[in-house]
Design a protein around this nucleic acid. Structure first.
Length: 327
DNA sequence: CCCCTGTATGGACAGGACTA
DNA sequence: TAGTCCTGTCCATACAGGGG
């Protein structure tokens, strides 16, 4: 009868109890375990627990017994170790695109990978000064659907909105649907971007994922990239500045030596660097020339100069002059 | 309804740690 | 040192559940 079926549940609850309550610093004695099982309505005999623990071990659970005053049991190794979980929690909390509500949910789920004692350590807040979080809950579903489309090699349709000065959502193109070939999702400057290839412009276009709605996968297969190229997101994101589109150019810039690290951080270890003189160096990289590229350059003031191509230098000059003329 | 099988359980007991 | 408590093993037995 019930007593029997309880015993089937016994080992399951035993695992649950050990999983939720124990870790290296928080072991349980056999007495604790029996009491805890009792709370779940499972009567258990002390000696039968040995067998159950053995079974759990055979099953692959790392139940460790440690002799202190009395013998204690705890689960030693888990799928994720605590520092790894902290990393994940921090990443969730810092992500602008994850809403407060979703952050809480995700952290709760992440916490279930460790004991409740250690889970407390995960509840810490990472304070990043008044972080703006999005309110668009849809983003997870958007991301999911986009990945699905990419995997199925299909195009997607969606509507794209922006906020007006009155802080109201307003659909672009009067709510007409965009149709495009998704190639990658990229995390840049705290926002999720969808990178698509436009047949019309024969170039890549970016969309903020949190500003997309009504995403649908359509039957049309994706447009093939020119020269049957494979899309390399890592290479691509090096060239683009804050996801702003533009013409791709090989640009040479002269930097003050103090900015070596900045350049390597931006373009990676393999960027071409050459000595210019005692205090400066020349670097060369593929860059999508855009206003955001210029504003990236501008932050270094007189410590940088665009050398080549001449028309990019000229454009930058115009950009600076225009800015100056407003004051 | 009976028999068989696998599992849980309880008793006996040994050994170790701790304590009075 | 004797007594106590805890842990873990061994073995006999009870019993649930399934098959016939």
């Amino acid at each position: 009868m019930a007593r029997r079926s309880n015993q089937k549940l016994k080992i399951l609850y035993l695992l649950k109890i050990l999983w939720e309550n124990t870790d290296e610093e928080n072991a349980m004695t056999l007495k604790d375990i029996i009491a805890e099982l009792d709370r779940y309505g499972i009567p258990s005999e002390r000696k039968s627990i040995y067998d159950d623990i053995d079974t759990l071990r055979f099953f692959g659970v790392d139940v460790v017994s440690r002799r202190a005053r009395t013998t204690e049991y705890f689960i030693a190794s888990r799928i994720f170790e605590l520092p790894e979980l902290k990393l994940l929690v921090d990443a969730v909390q810092c992500s602008k695109f994850i809403t407060y509500k979703k952050s809480e949910e995700l952290i709760k789920k992440i916490s279930s990978f460790t004991s409740r004692h250690r889970a407390k350590l995960l509840q810490r807040q990472v304070y990043v000064a008044d972080r703006v979080k999005t309110v668009n809950e849809n983003i997870y579903y958007n991301v999911d659907r986009i990945y699905l489309a990419i995997a199925q090699d299909k195009q997607i349709s969606f509507r794209y909105f922006e906020y007006t000065i009155d802080k109201e959502k307003k659909f672009r193109k009067n709510g007409k649907k965009y149709i495009t070939s998704p190639y990658a999702l990229s995390w840049d400057n705290e926002n999720y971007y969808l990178i698509t290839f436009s047949e019309k412009y024969q170039d890549f276009t970016h969309y903020r994922v949190d500003k997309m709605s009504d995403i649908e996968i359509i039957e049309q297969p994706r447009i093939v990239l020119p020269n049957n190229e494979k899309f390399n997101i890592a290479e691509y994101s090096k060239k683009v500045f804050y996801m702003f589109g533009g013409e791709e150019k090989t640009v040479e810039m002269q930097f003050d030596n103090s900015l070596v690290n900045v350049v390597i951080d931006r373009f990676g270890q393999n960027v071409y660097l050459g000595k210019a003189d005692e205090s400066s160096f020349i670097m060369r990289a593929e860059v999508i020339v855009s206003p955001t590229f210029f504003s990236w350059v501008f932050q270094f003031c007189d410590k940088v100069k665009i050398i080549n191509p001449k028309e990019v230098a000229q454009k930058y000059k115009e950009y600076l002059n225009e800015t100056l003329s407003r004051y």
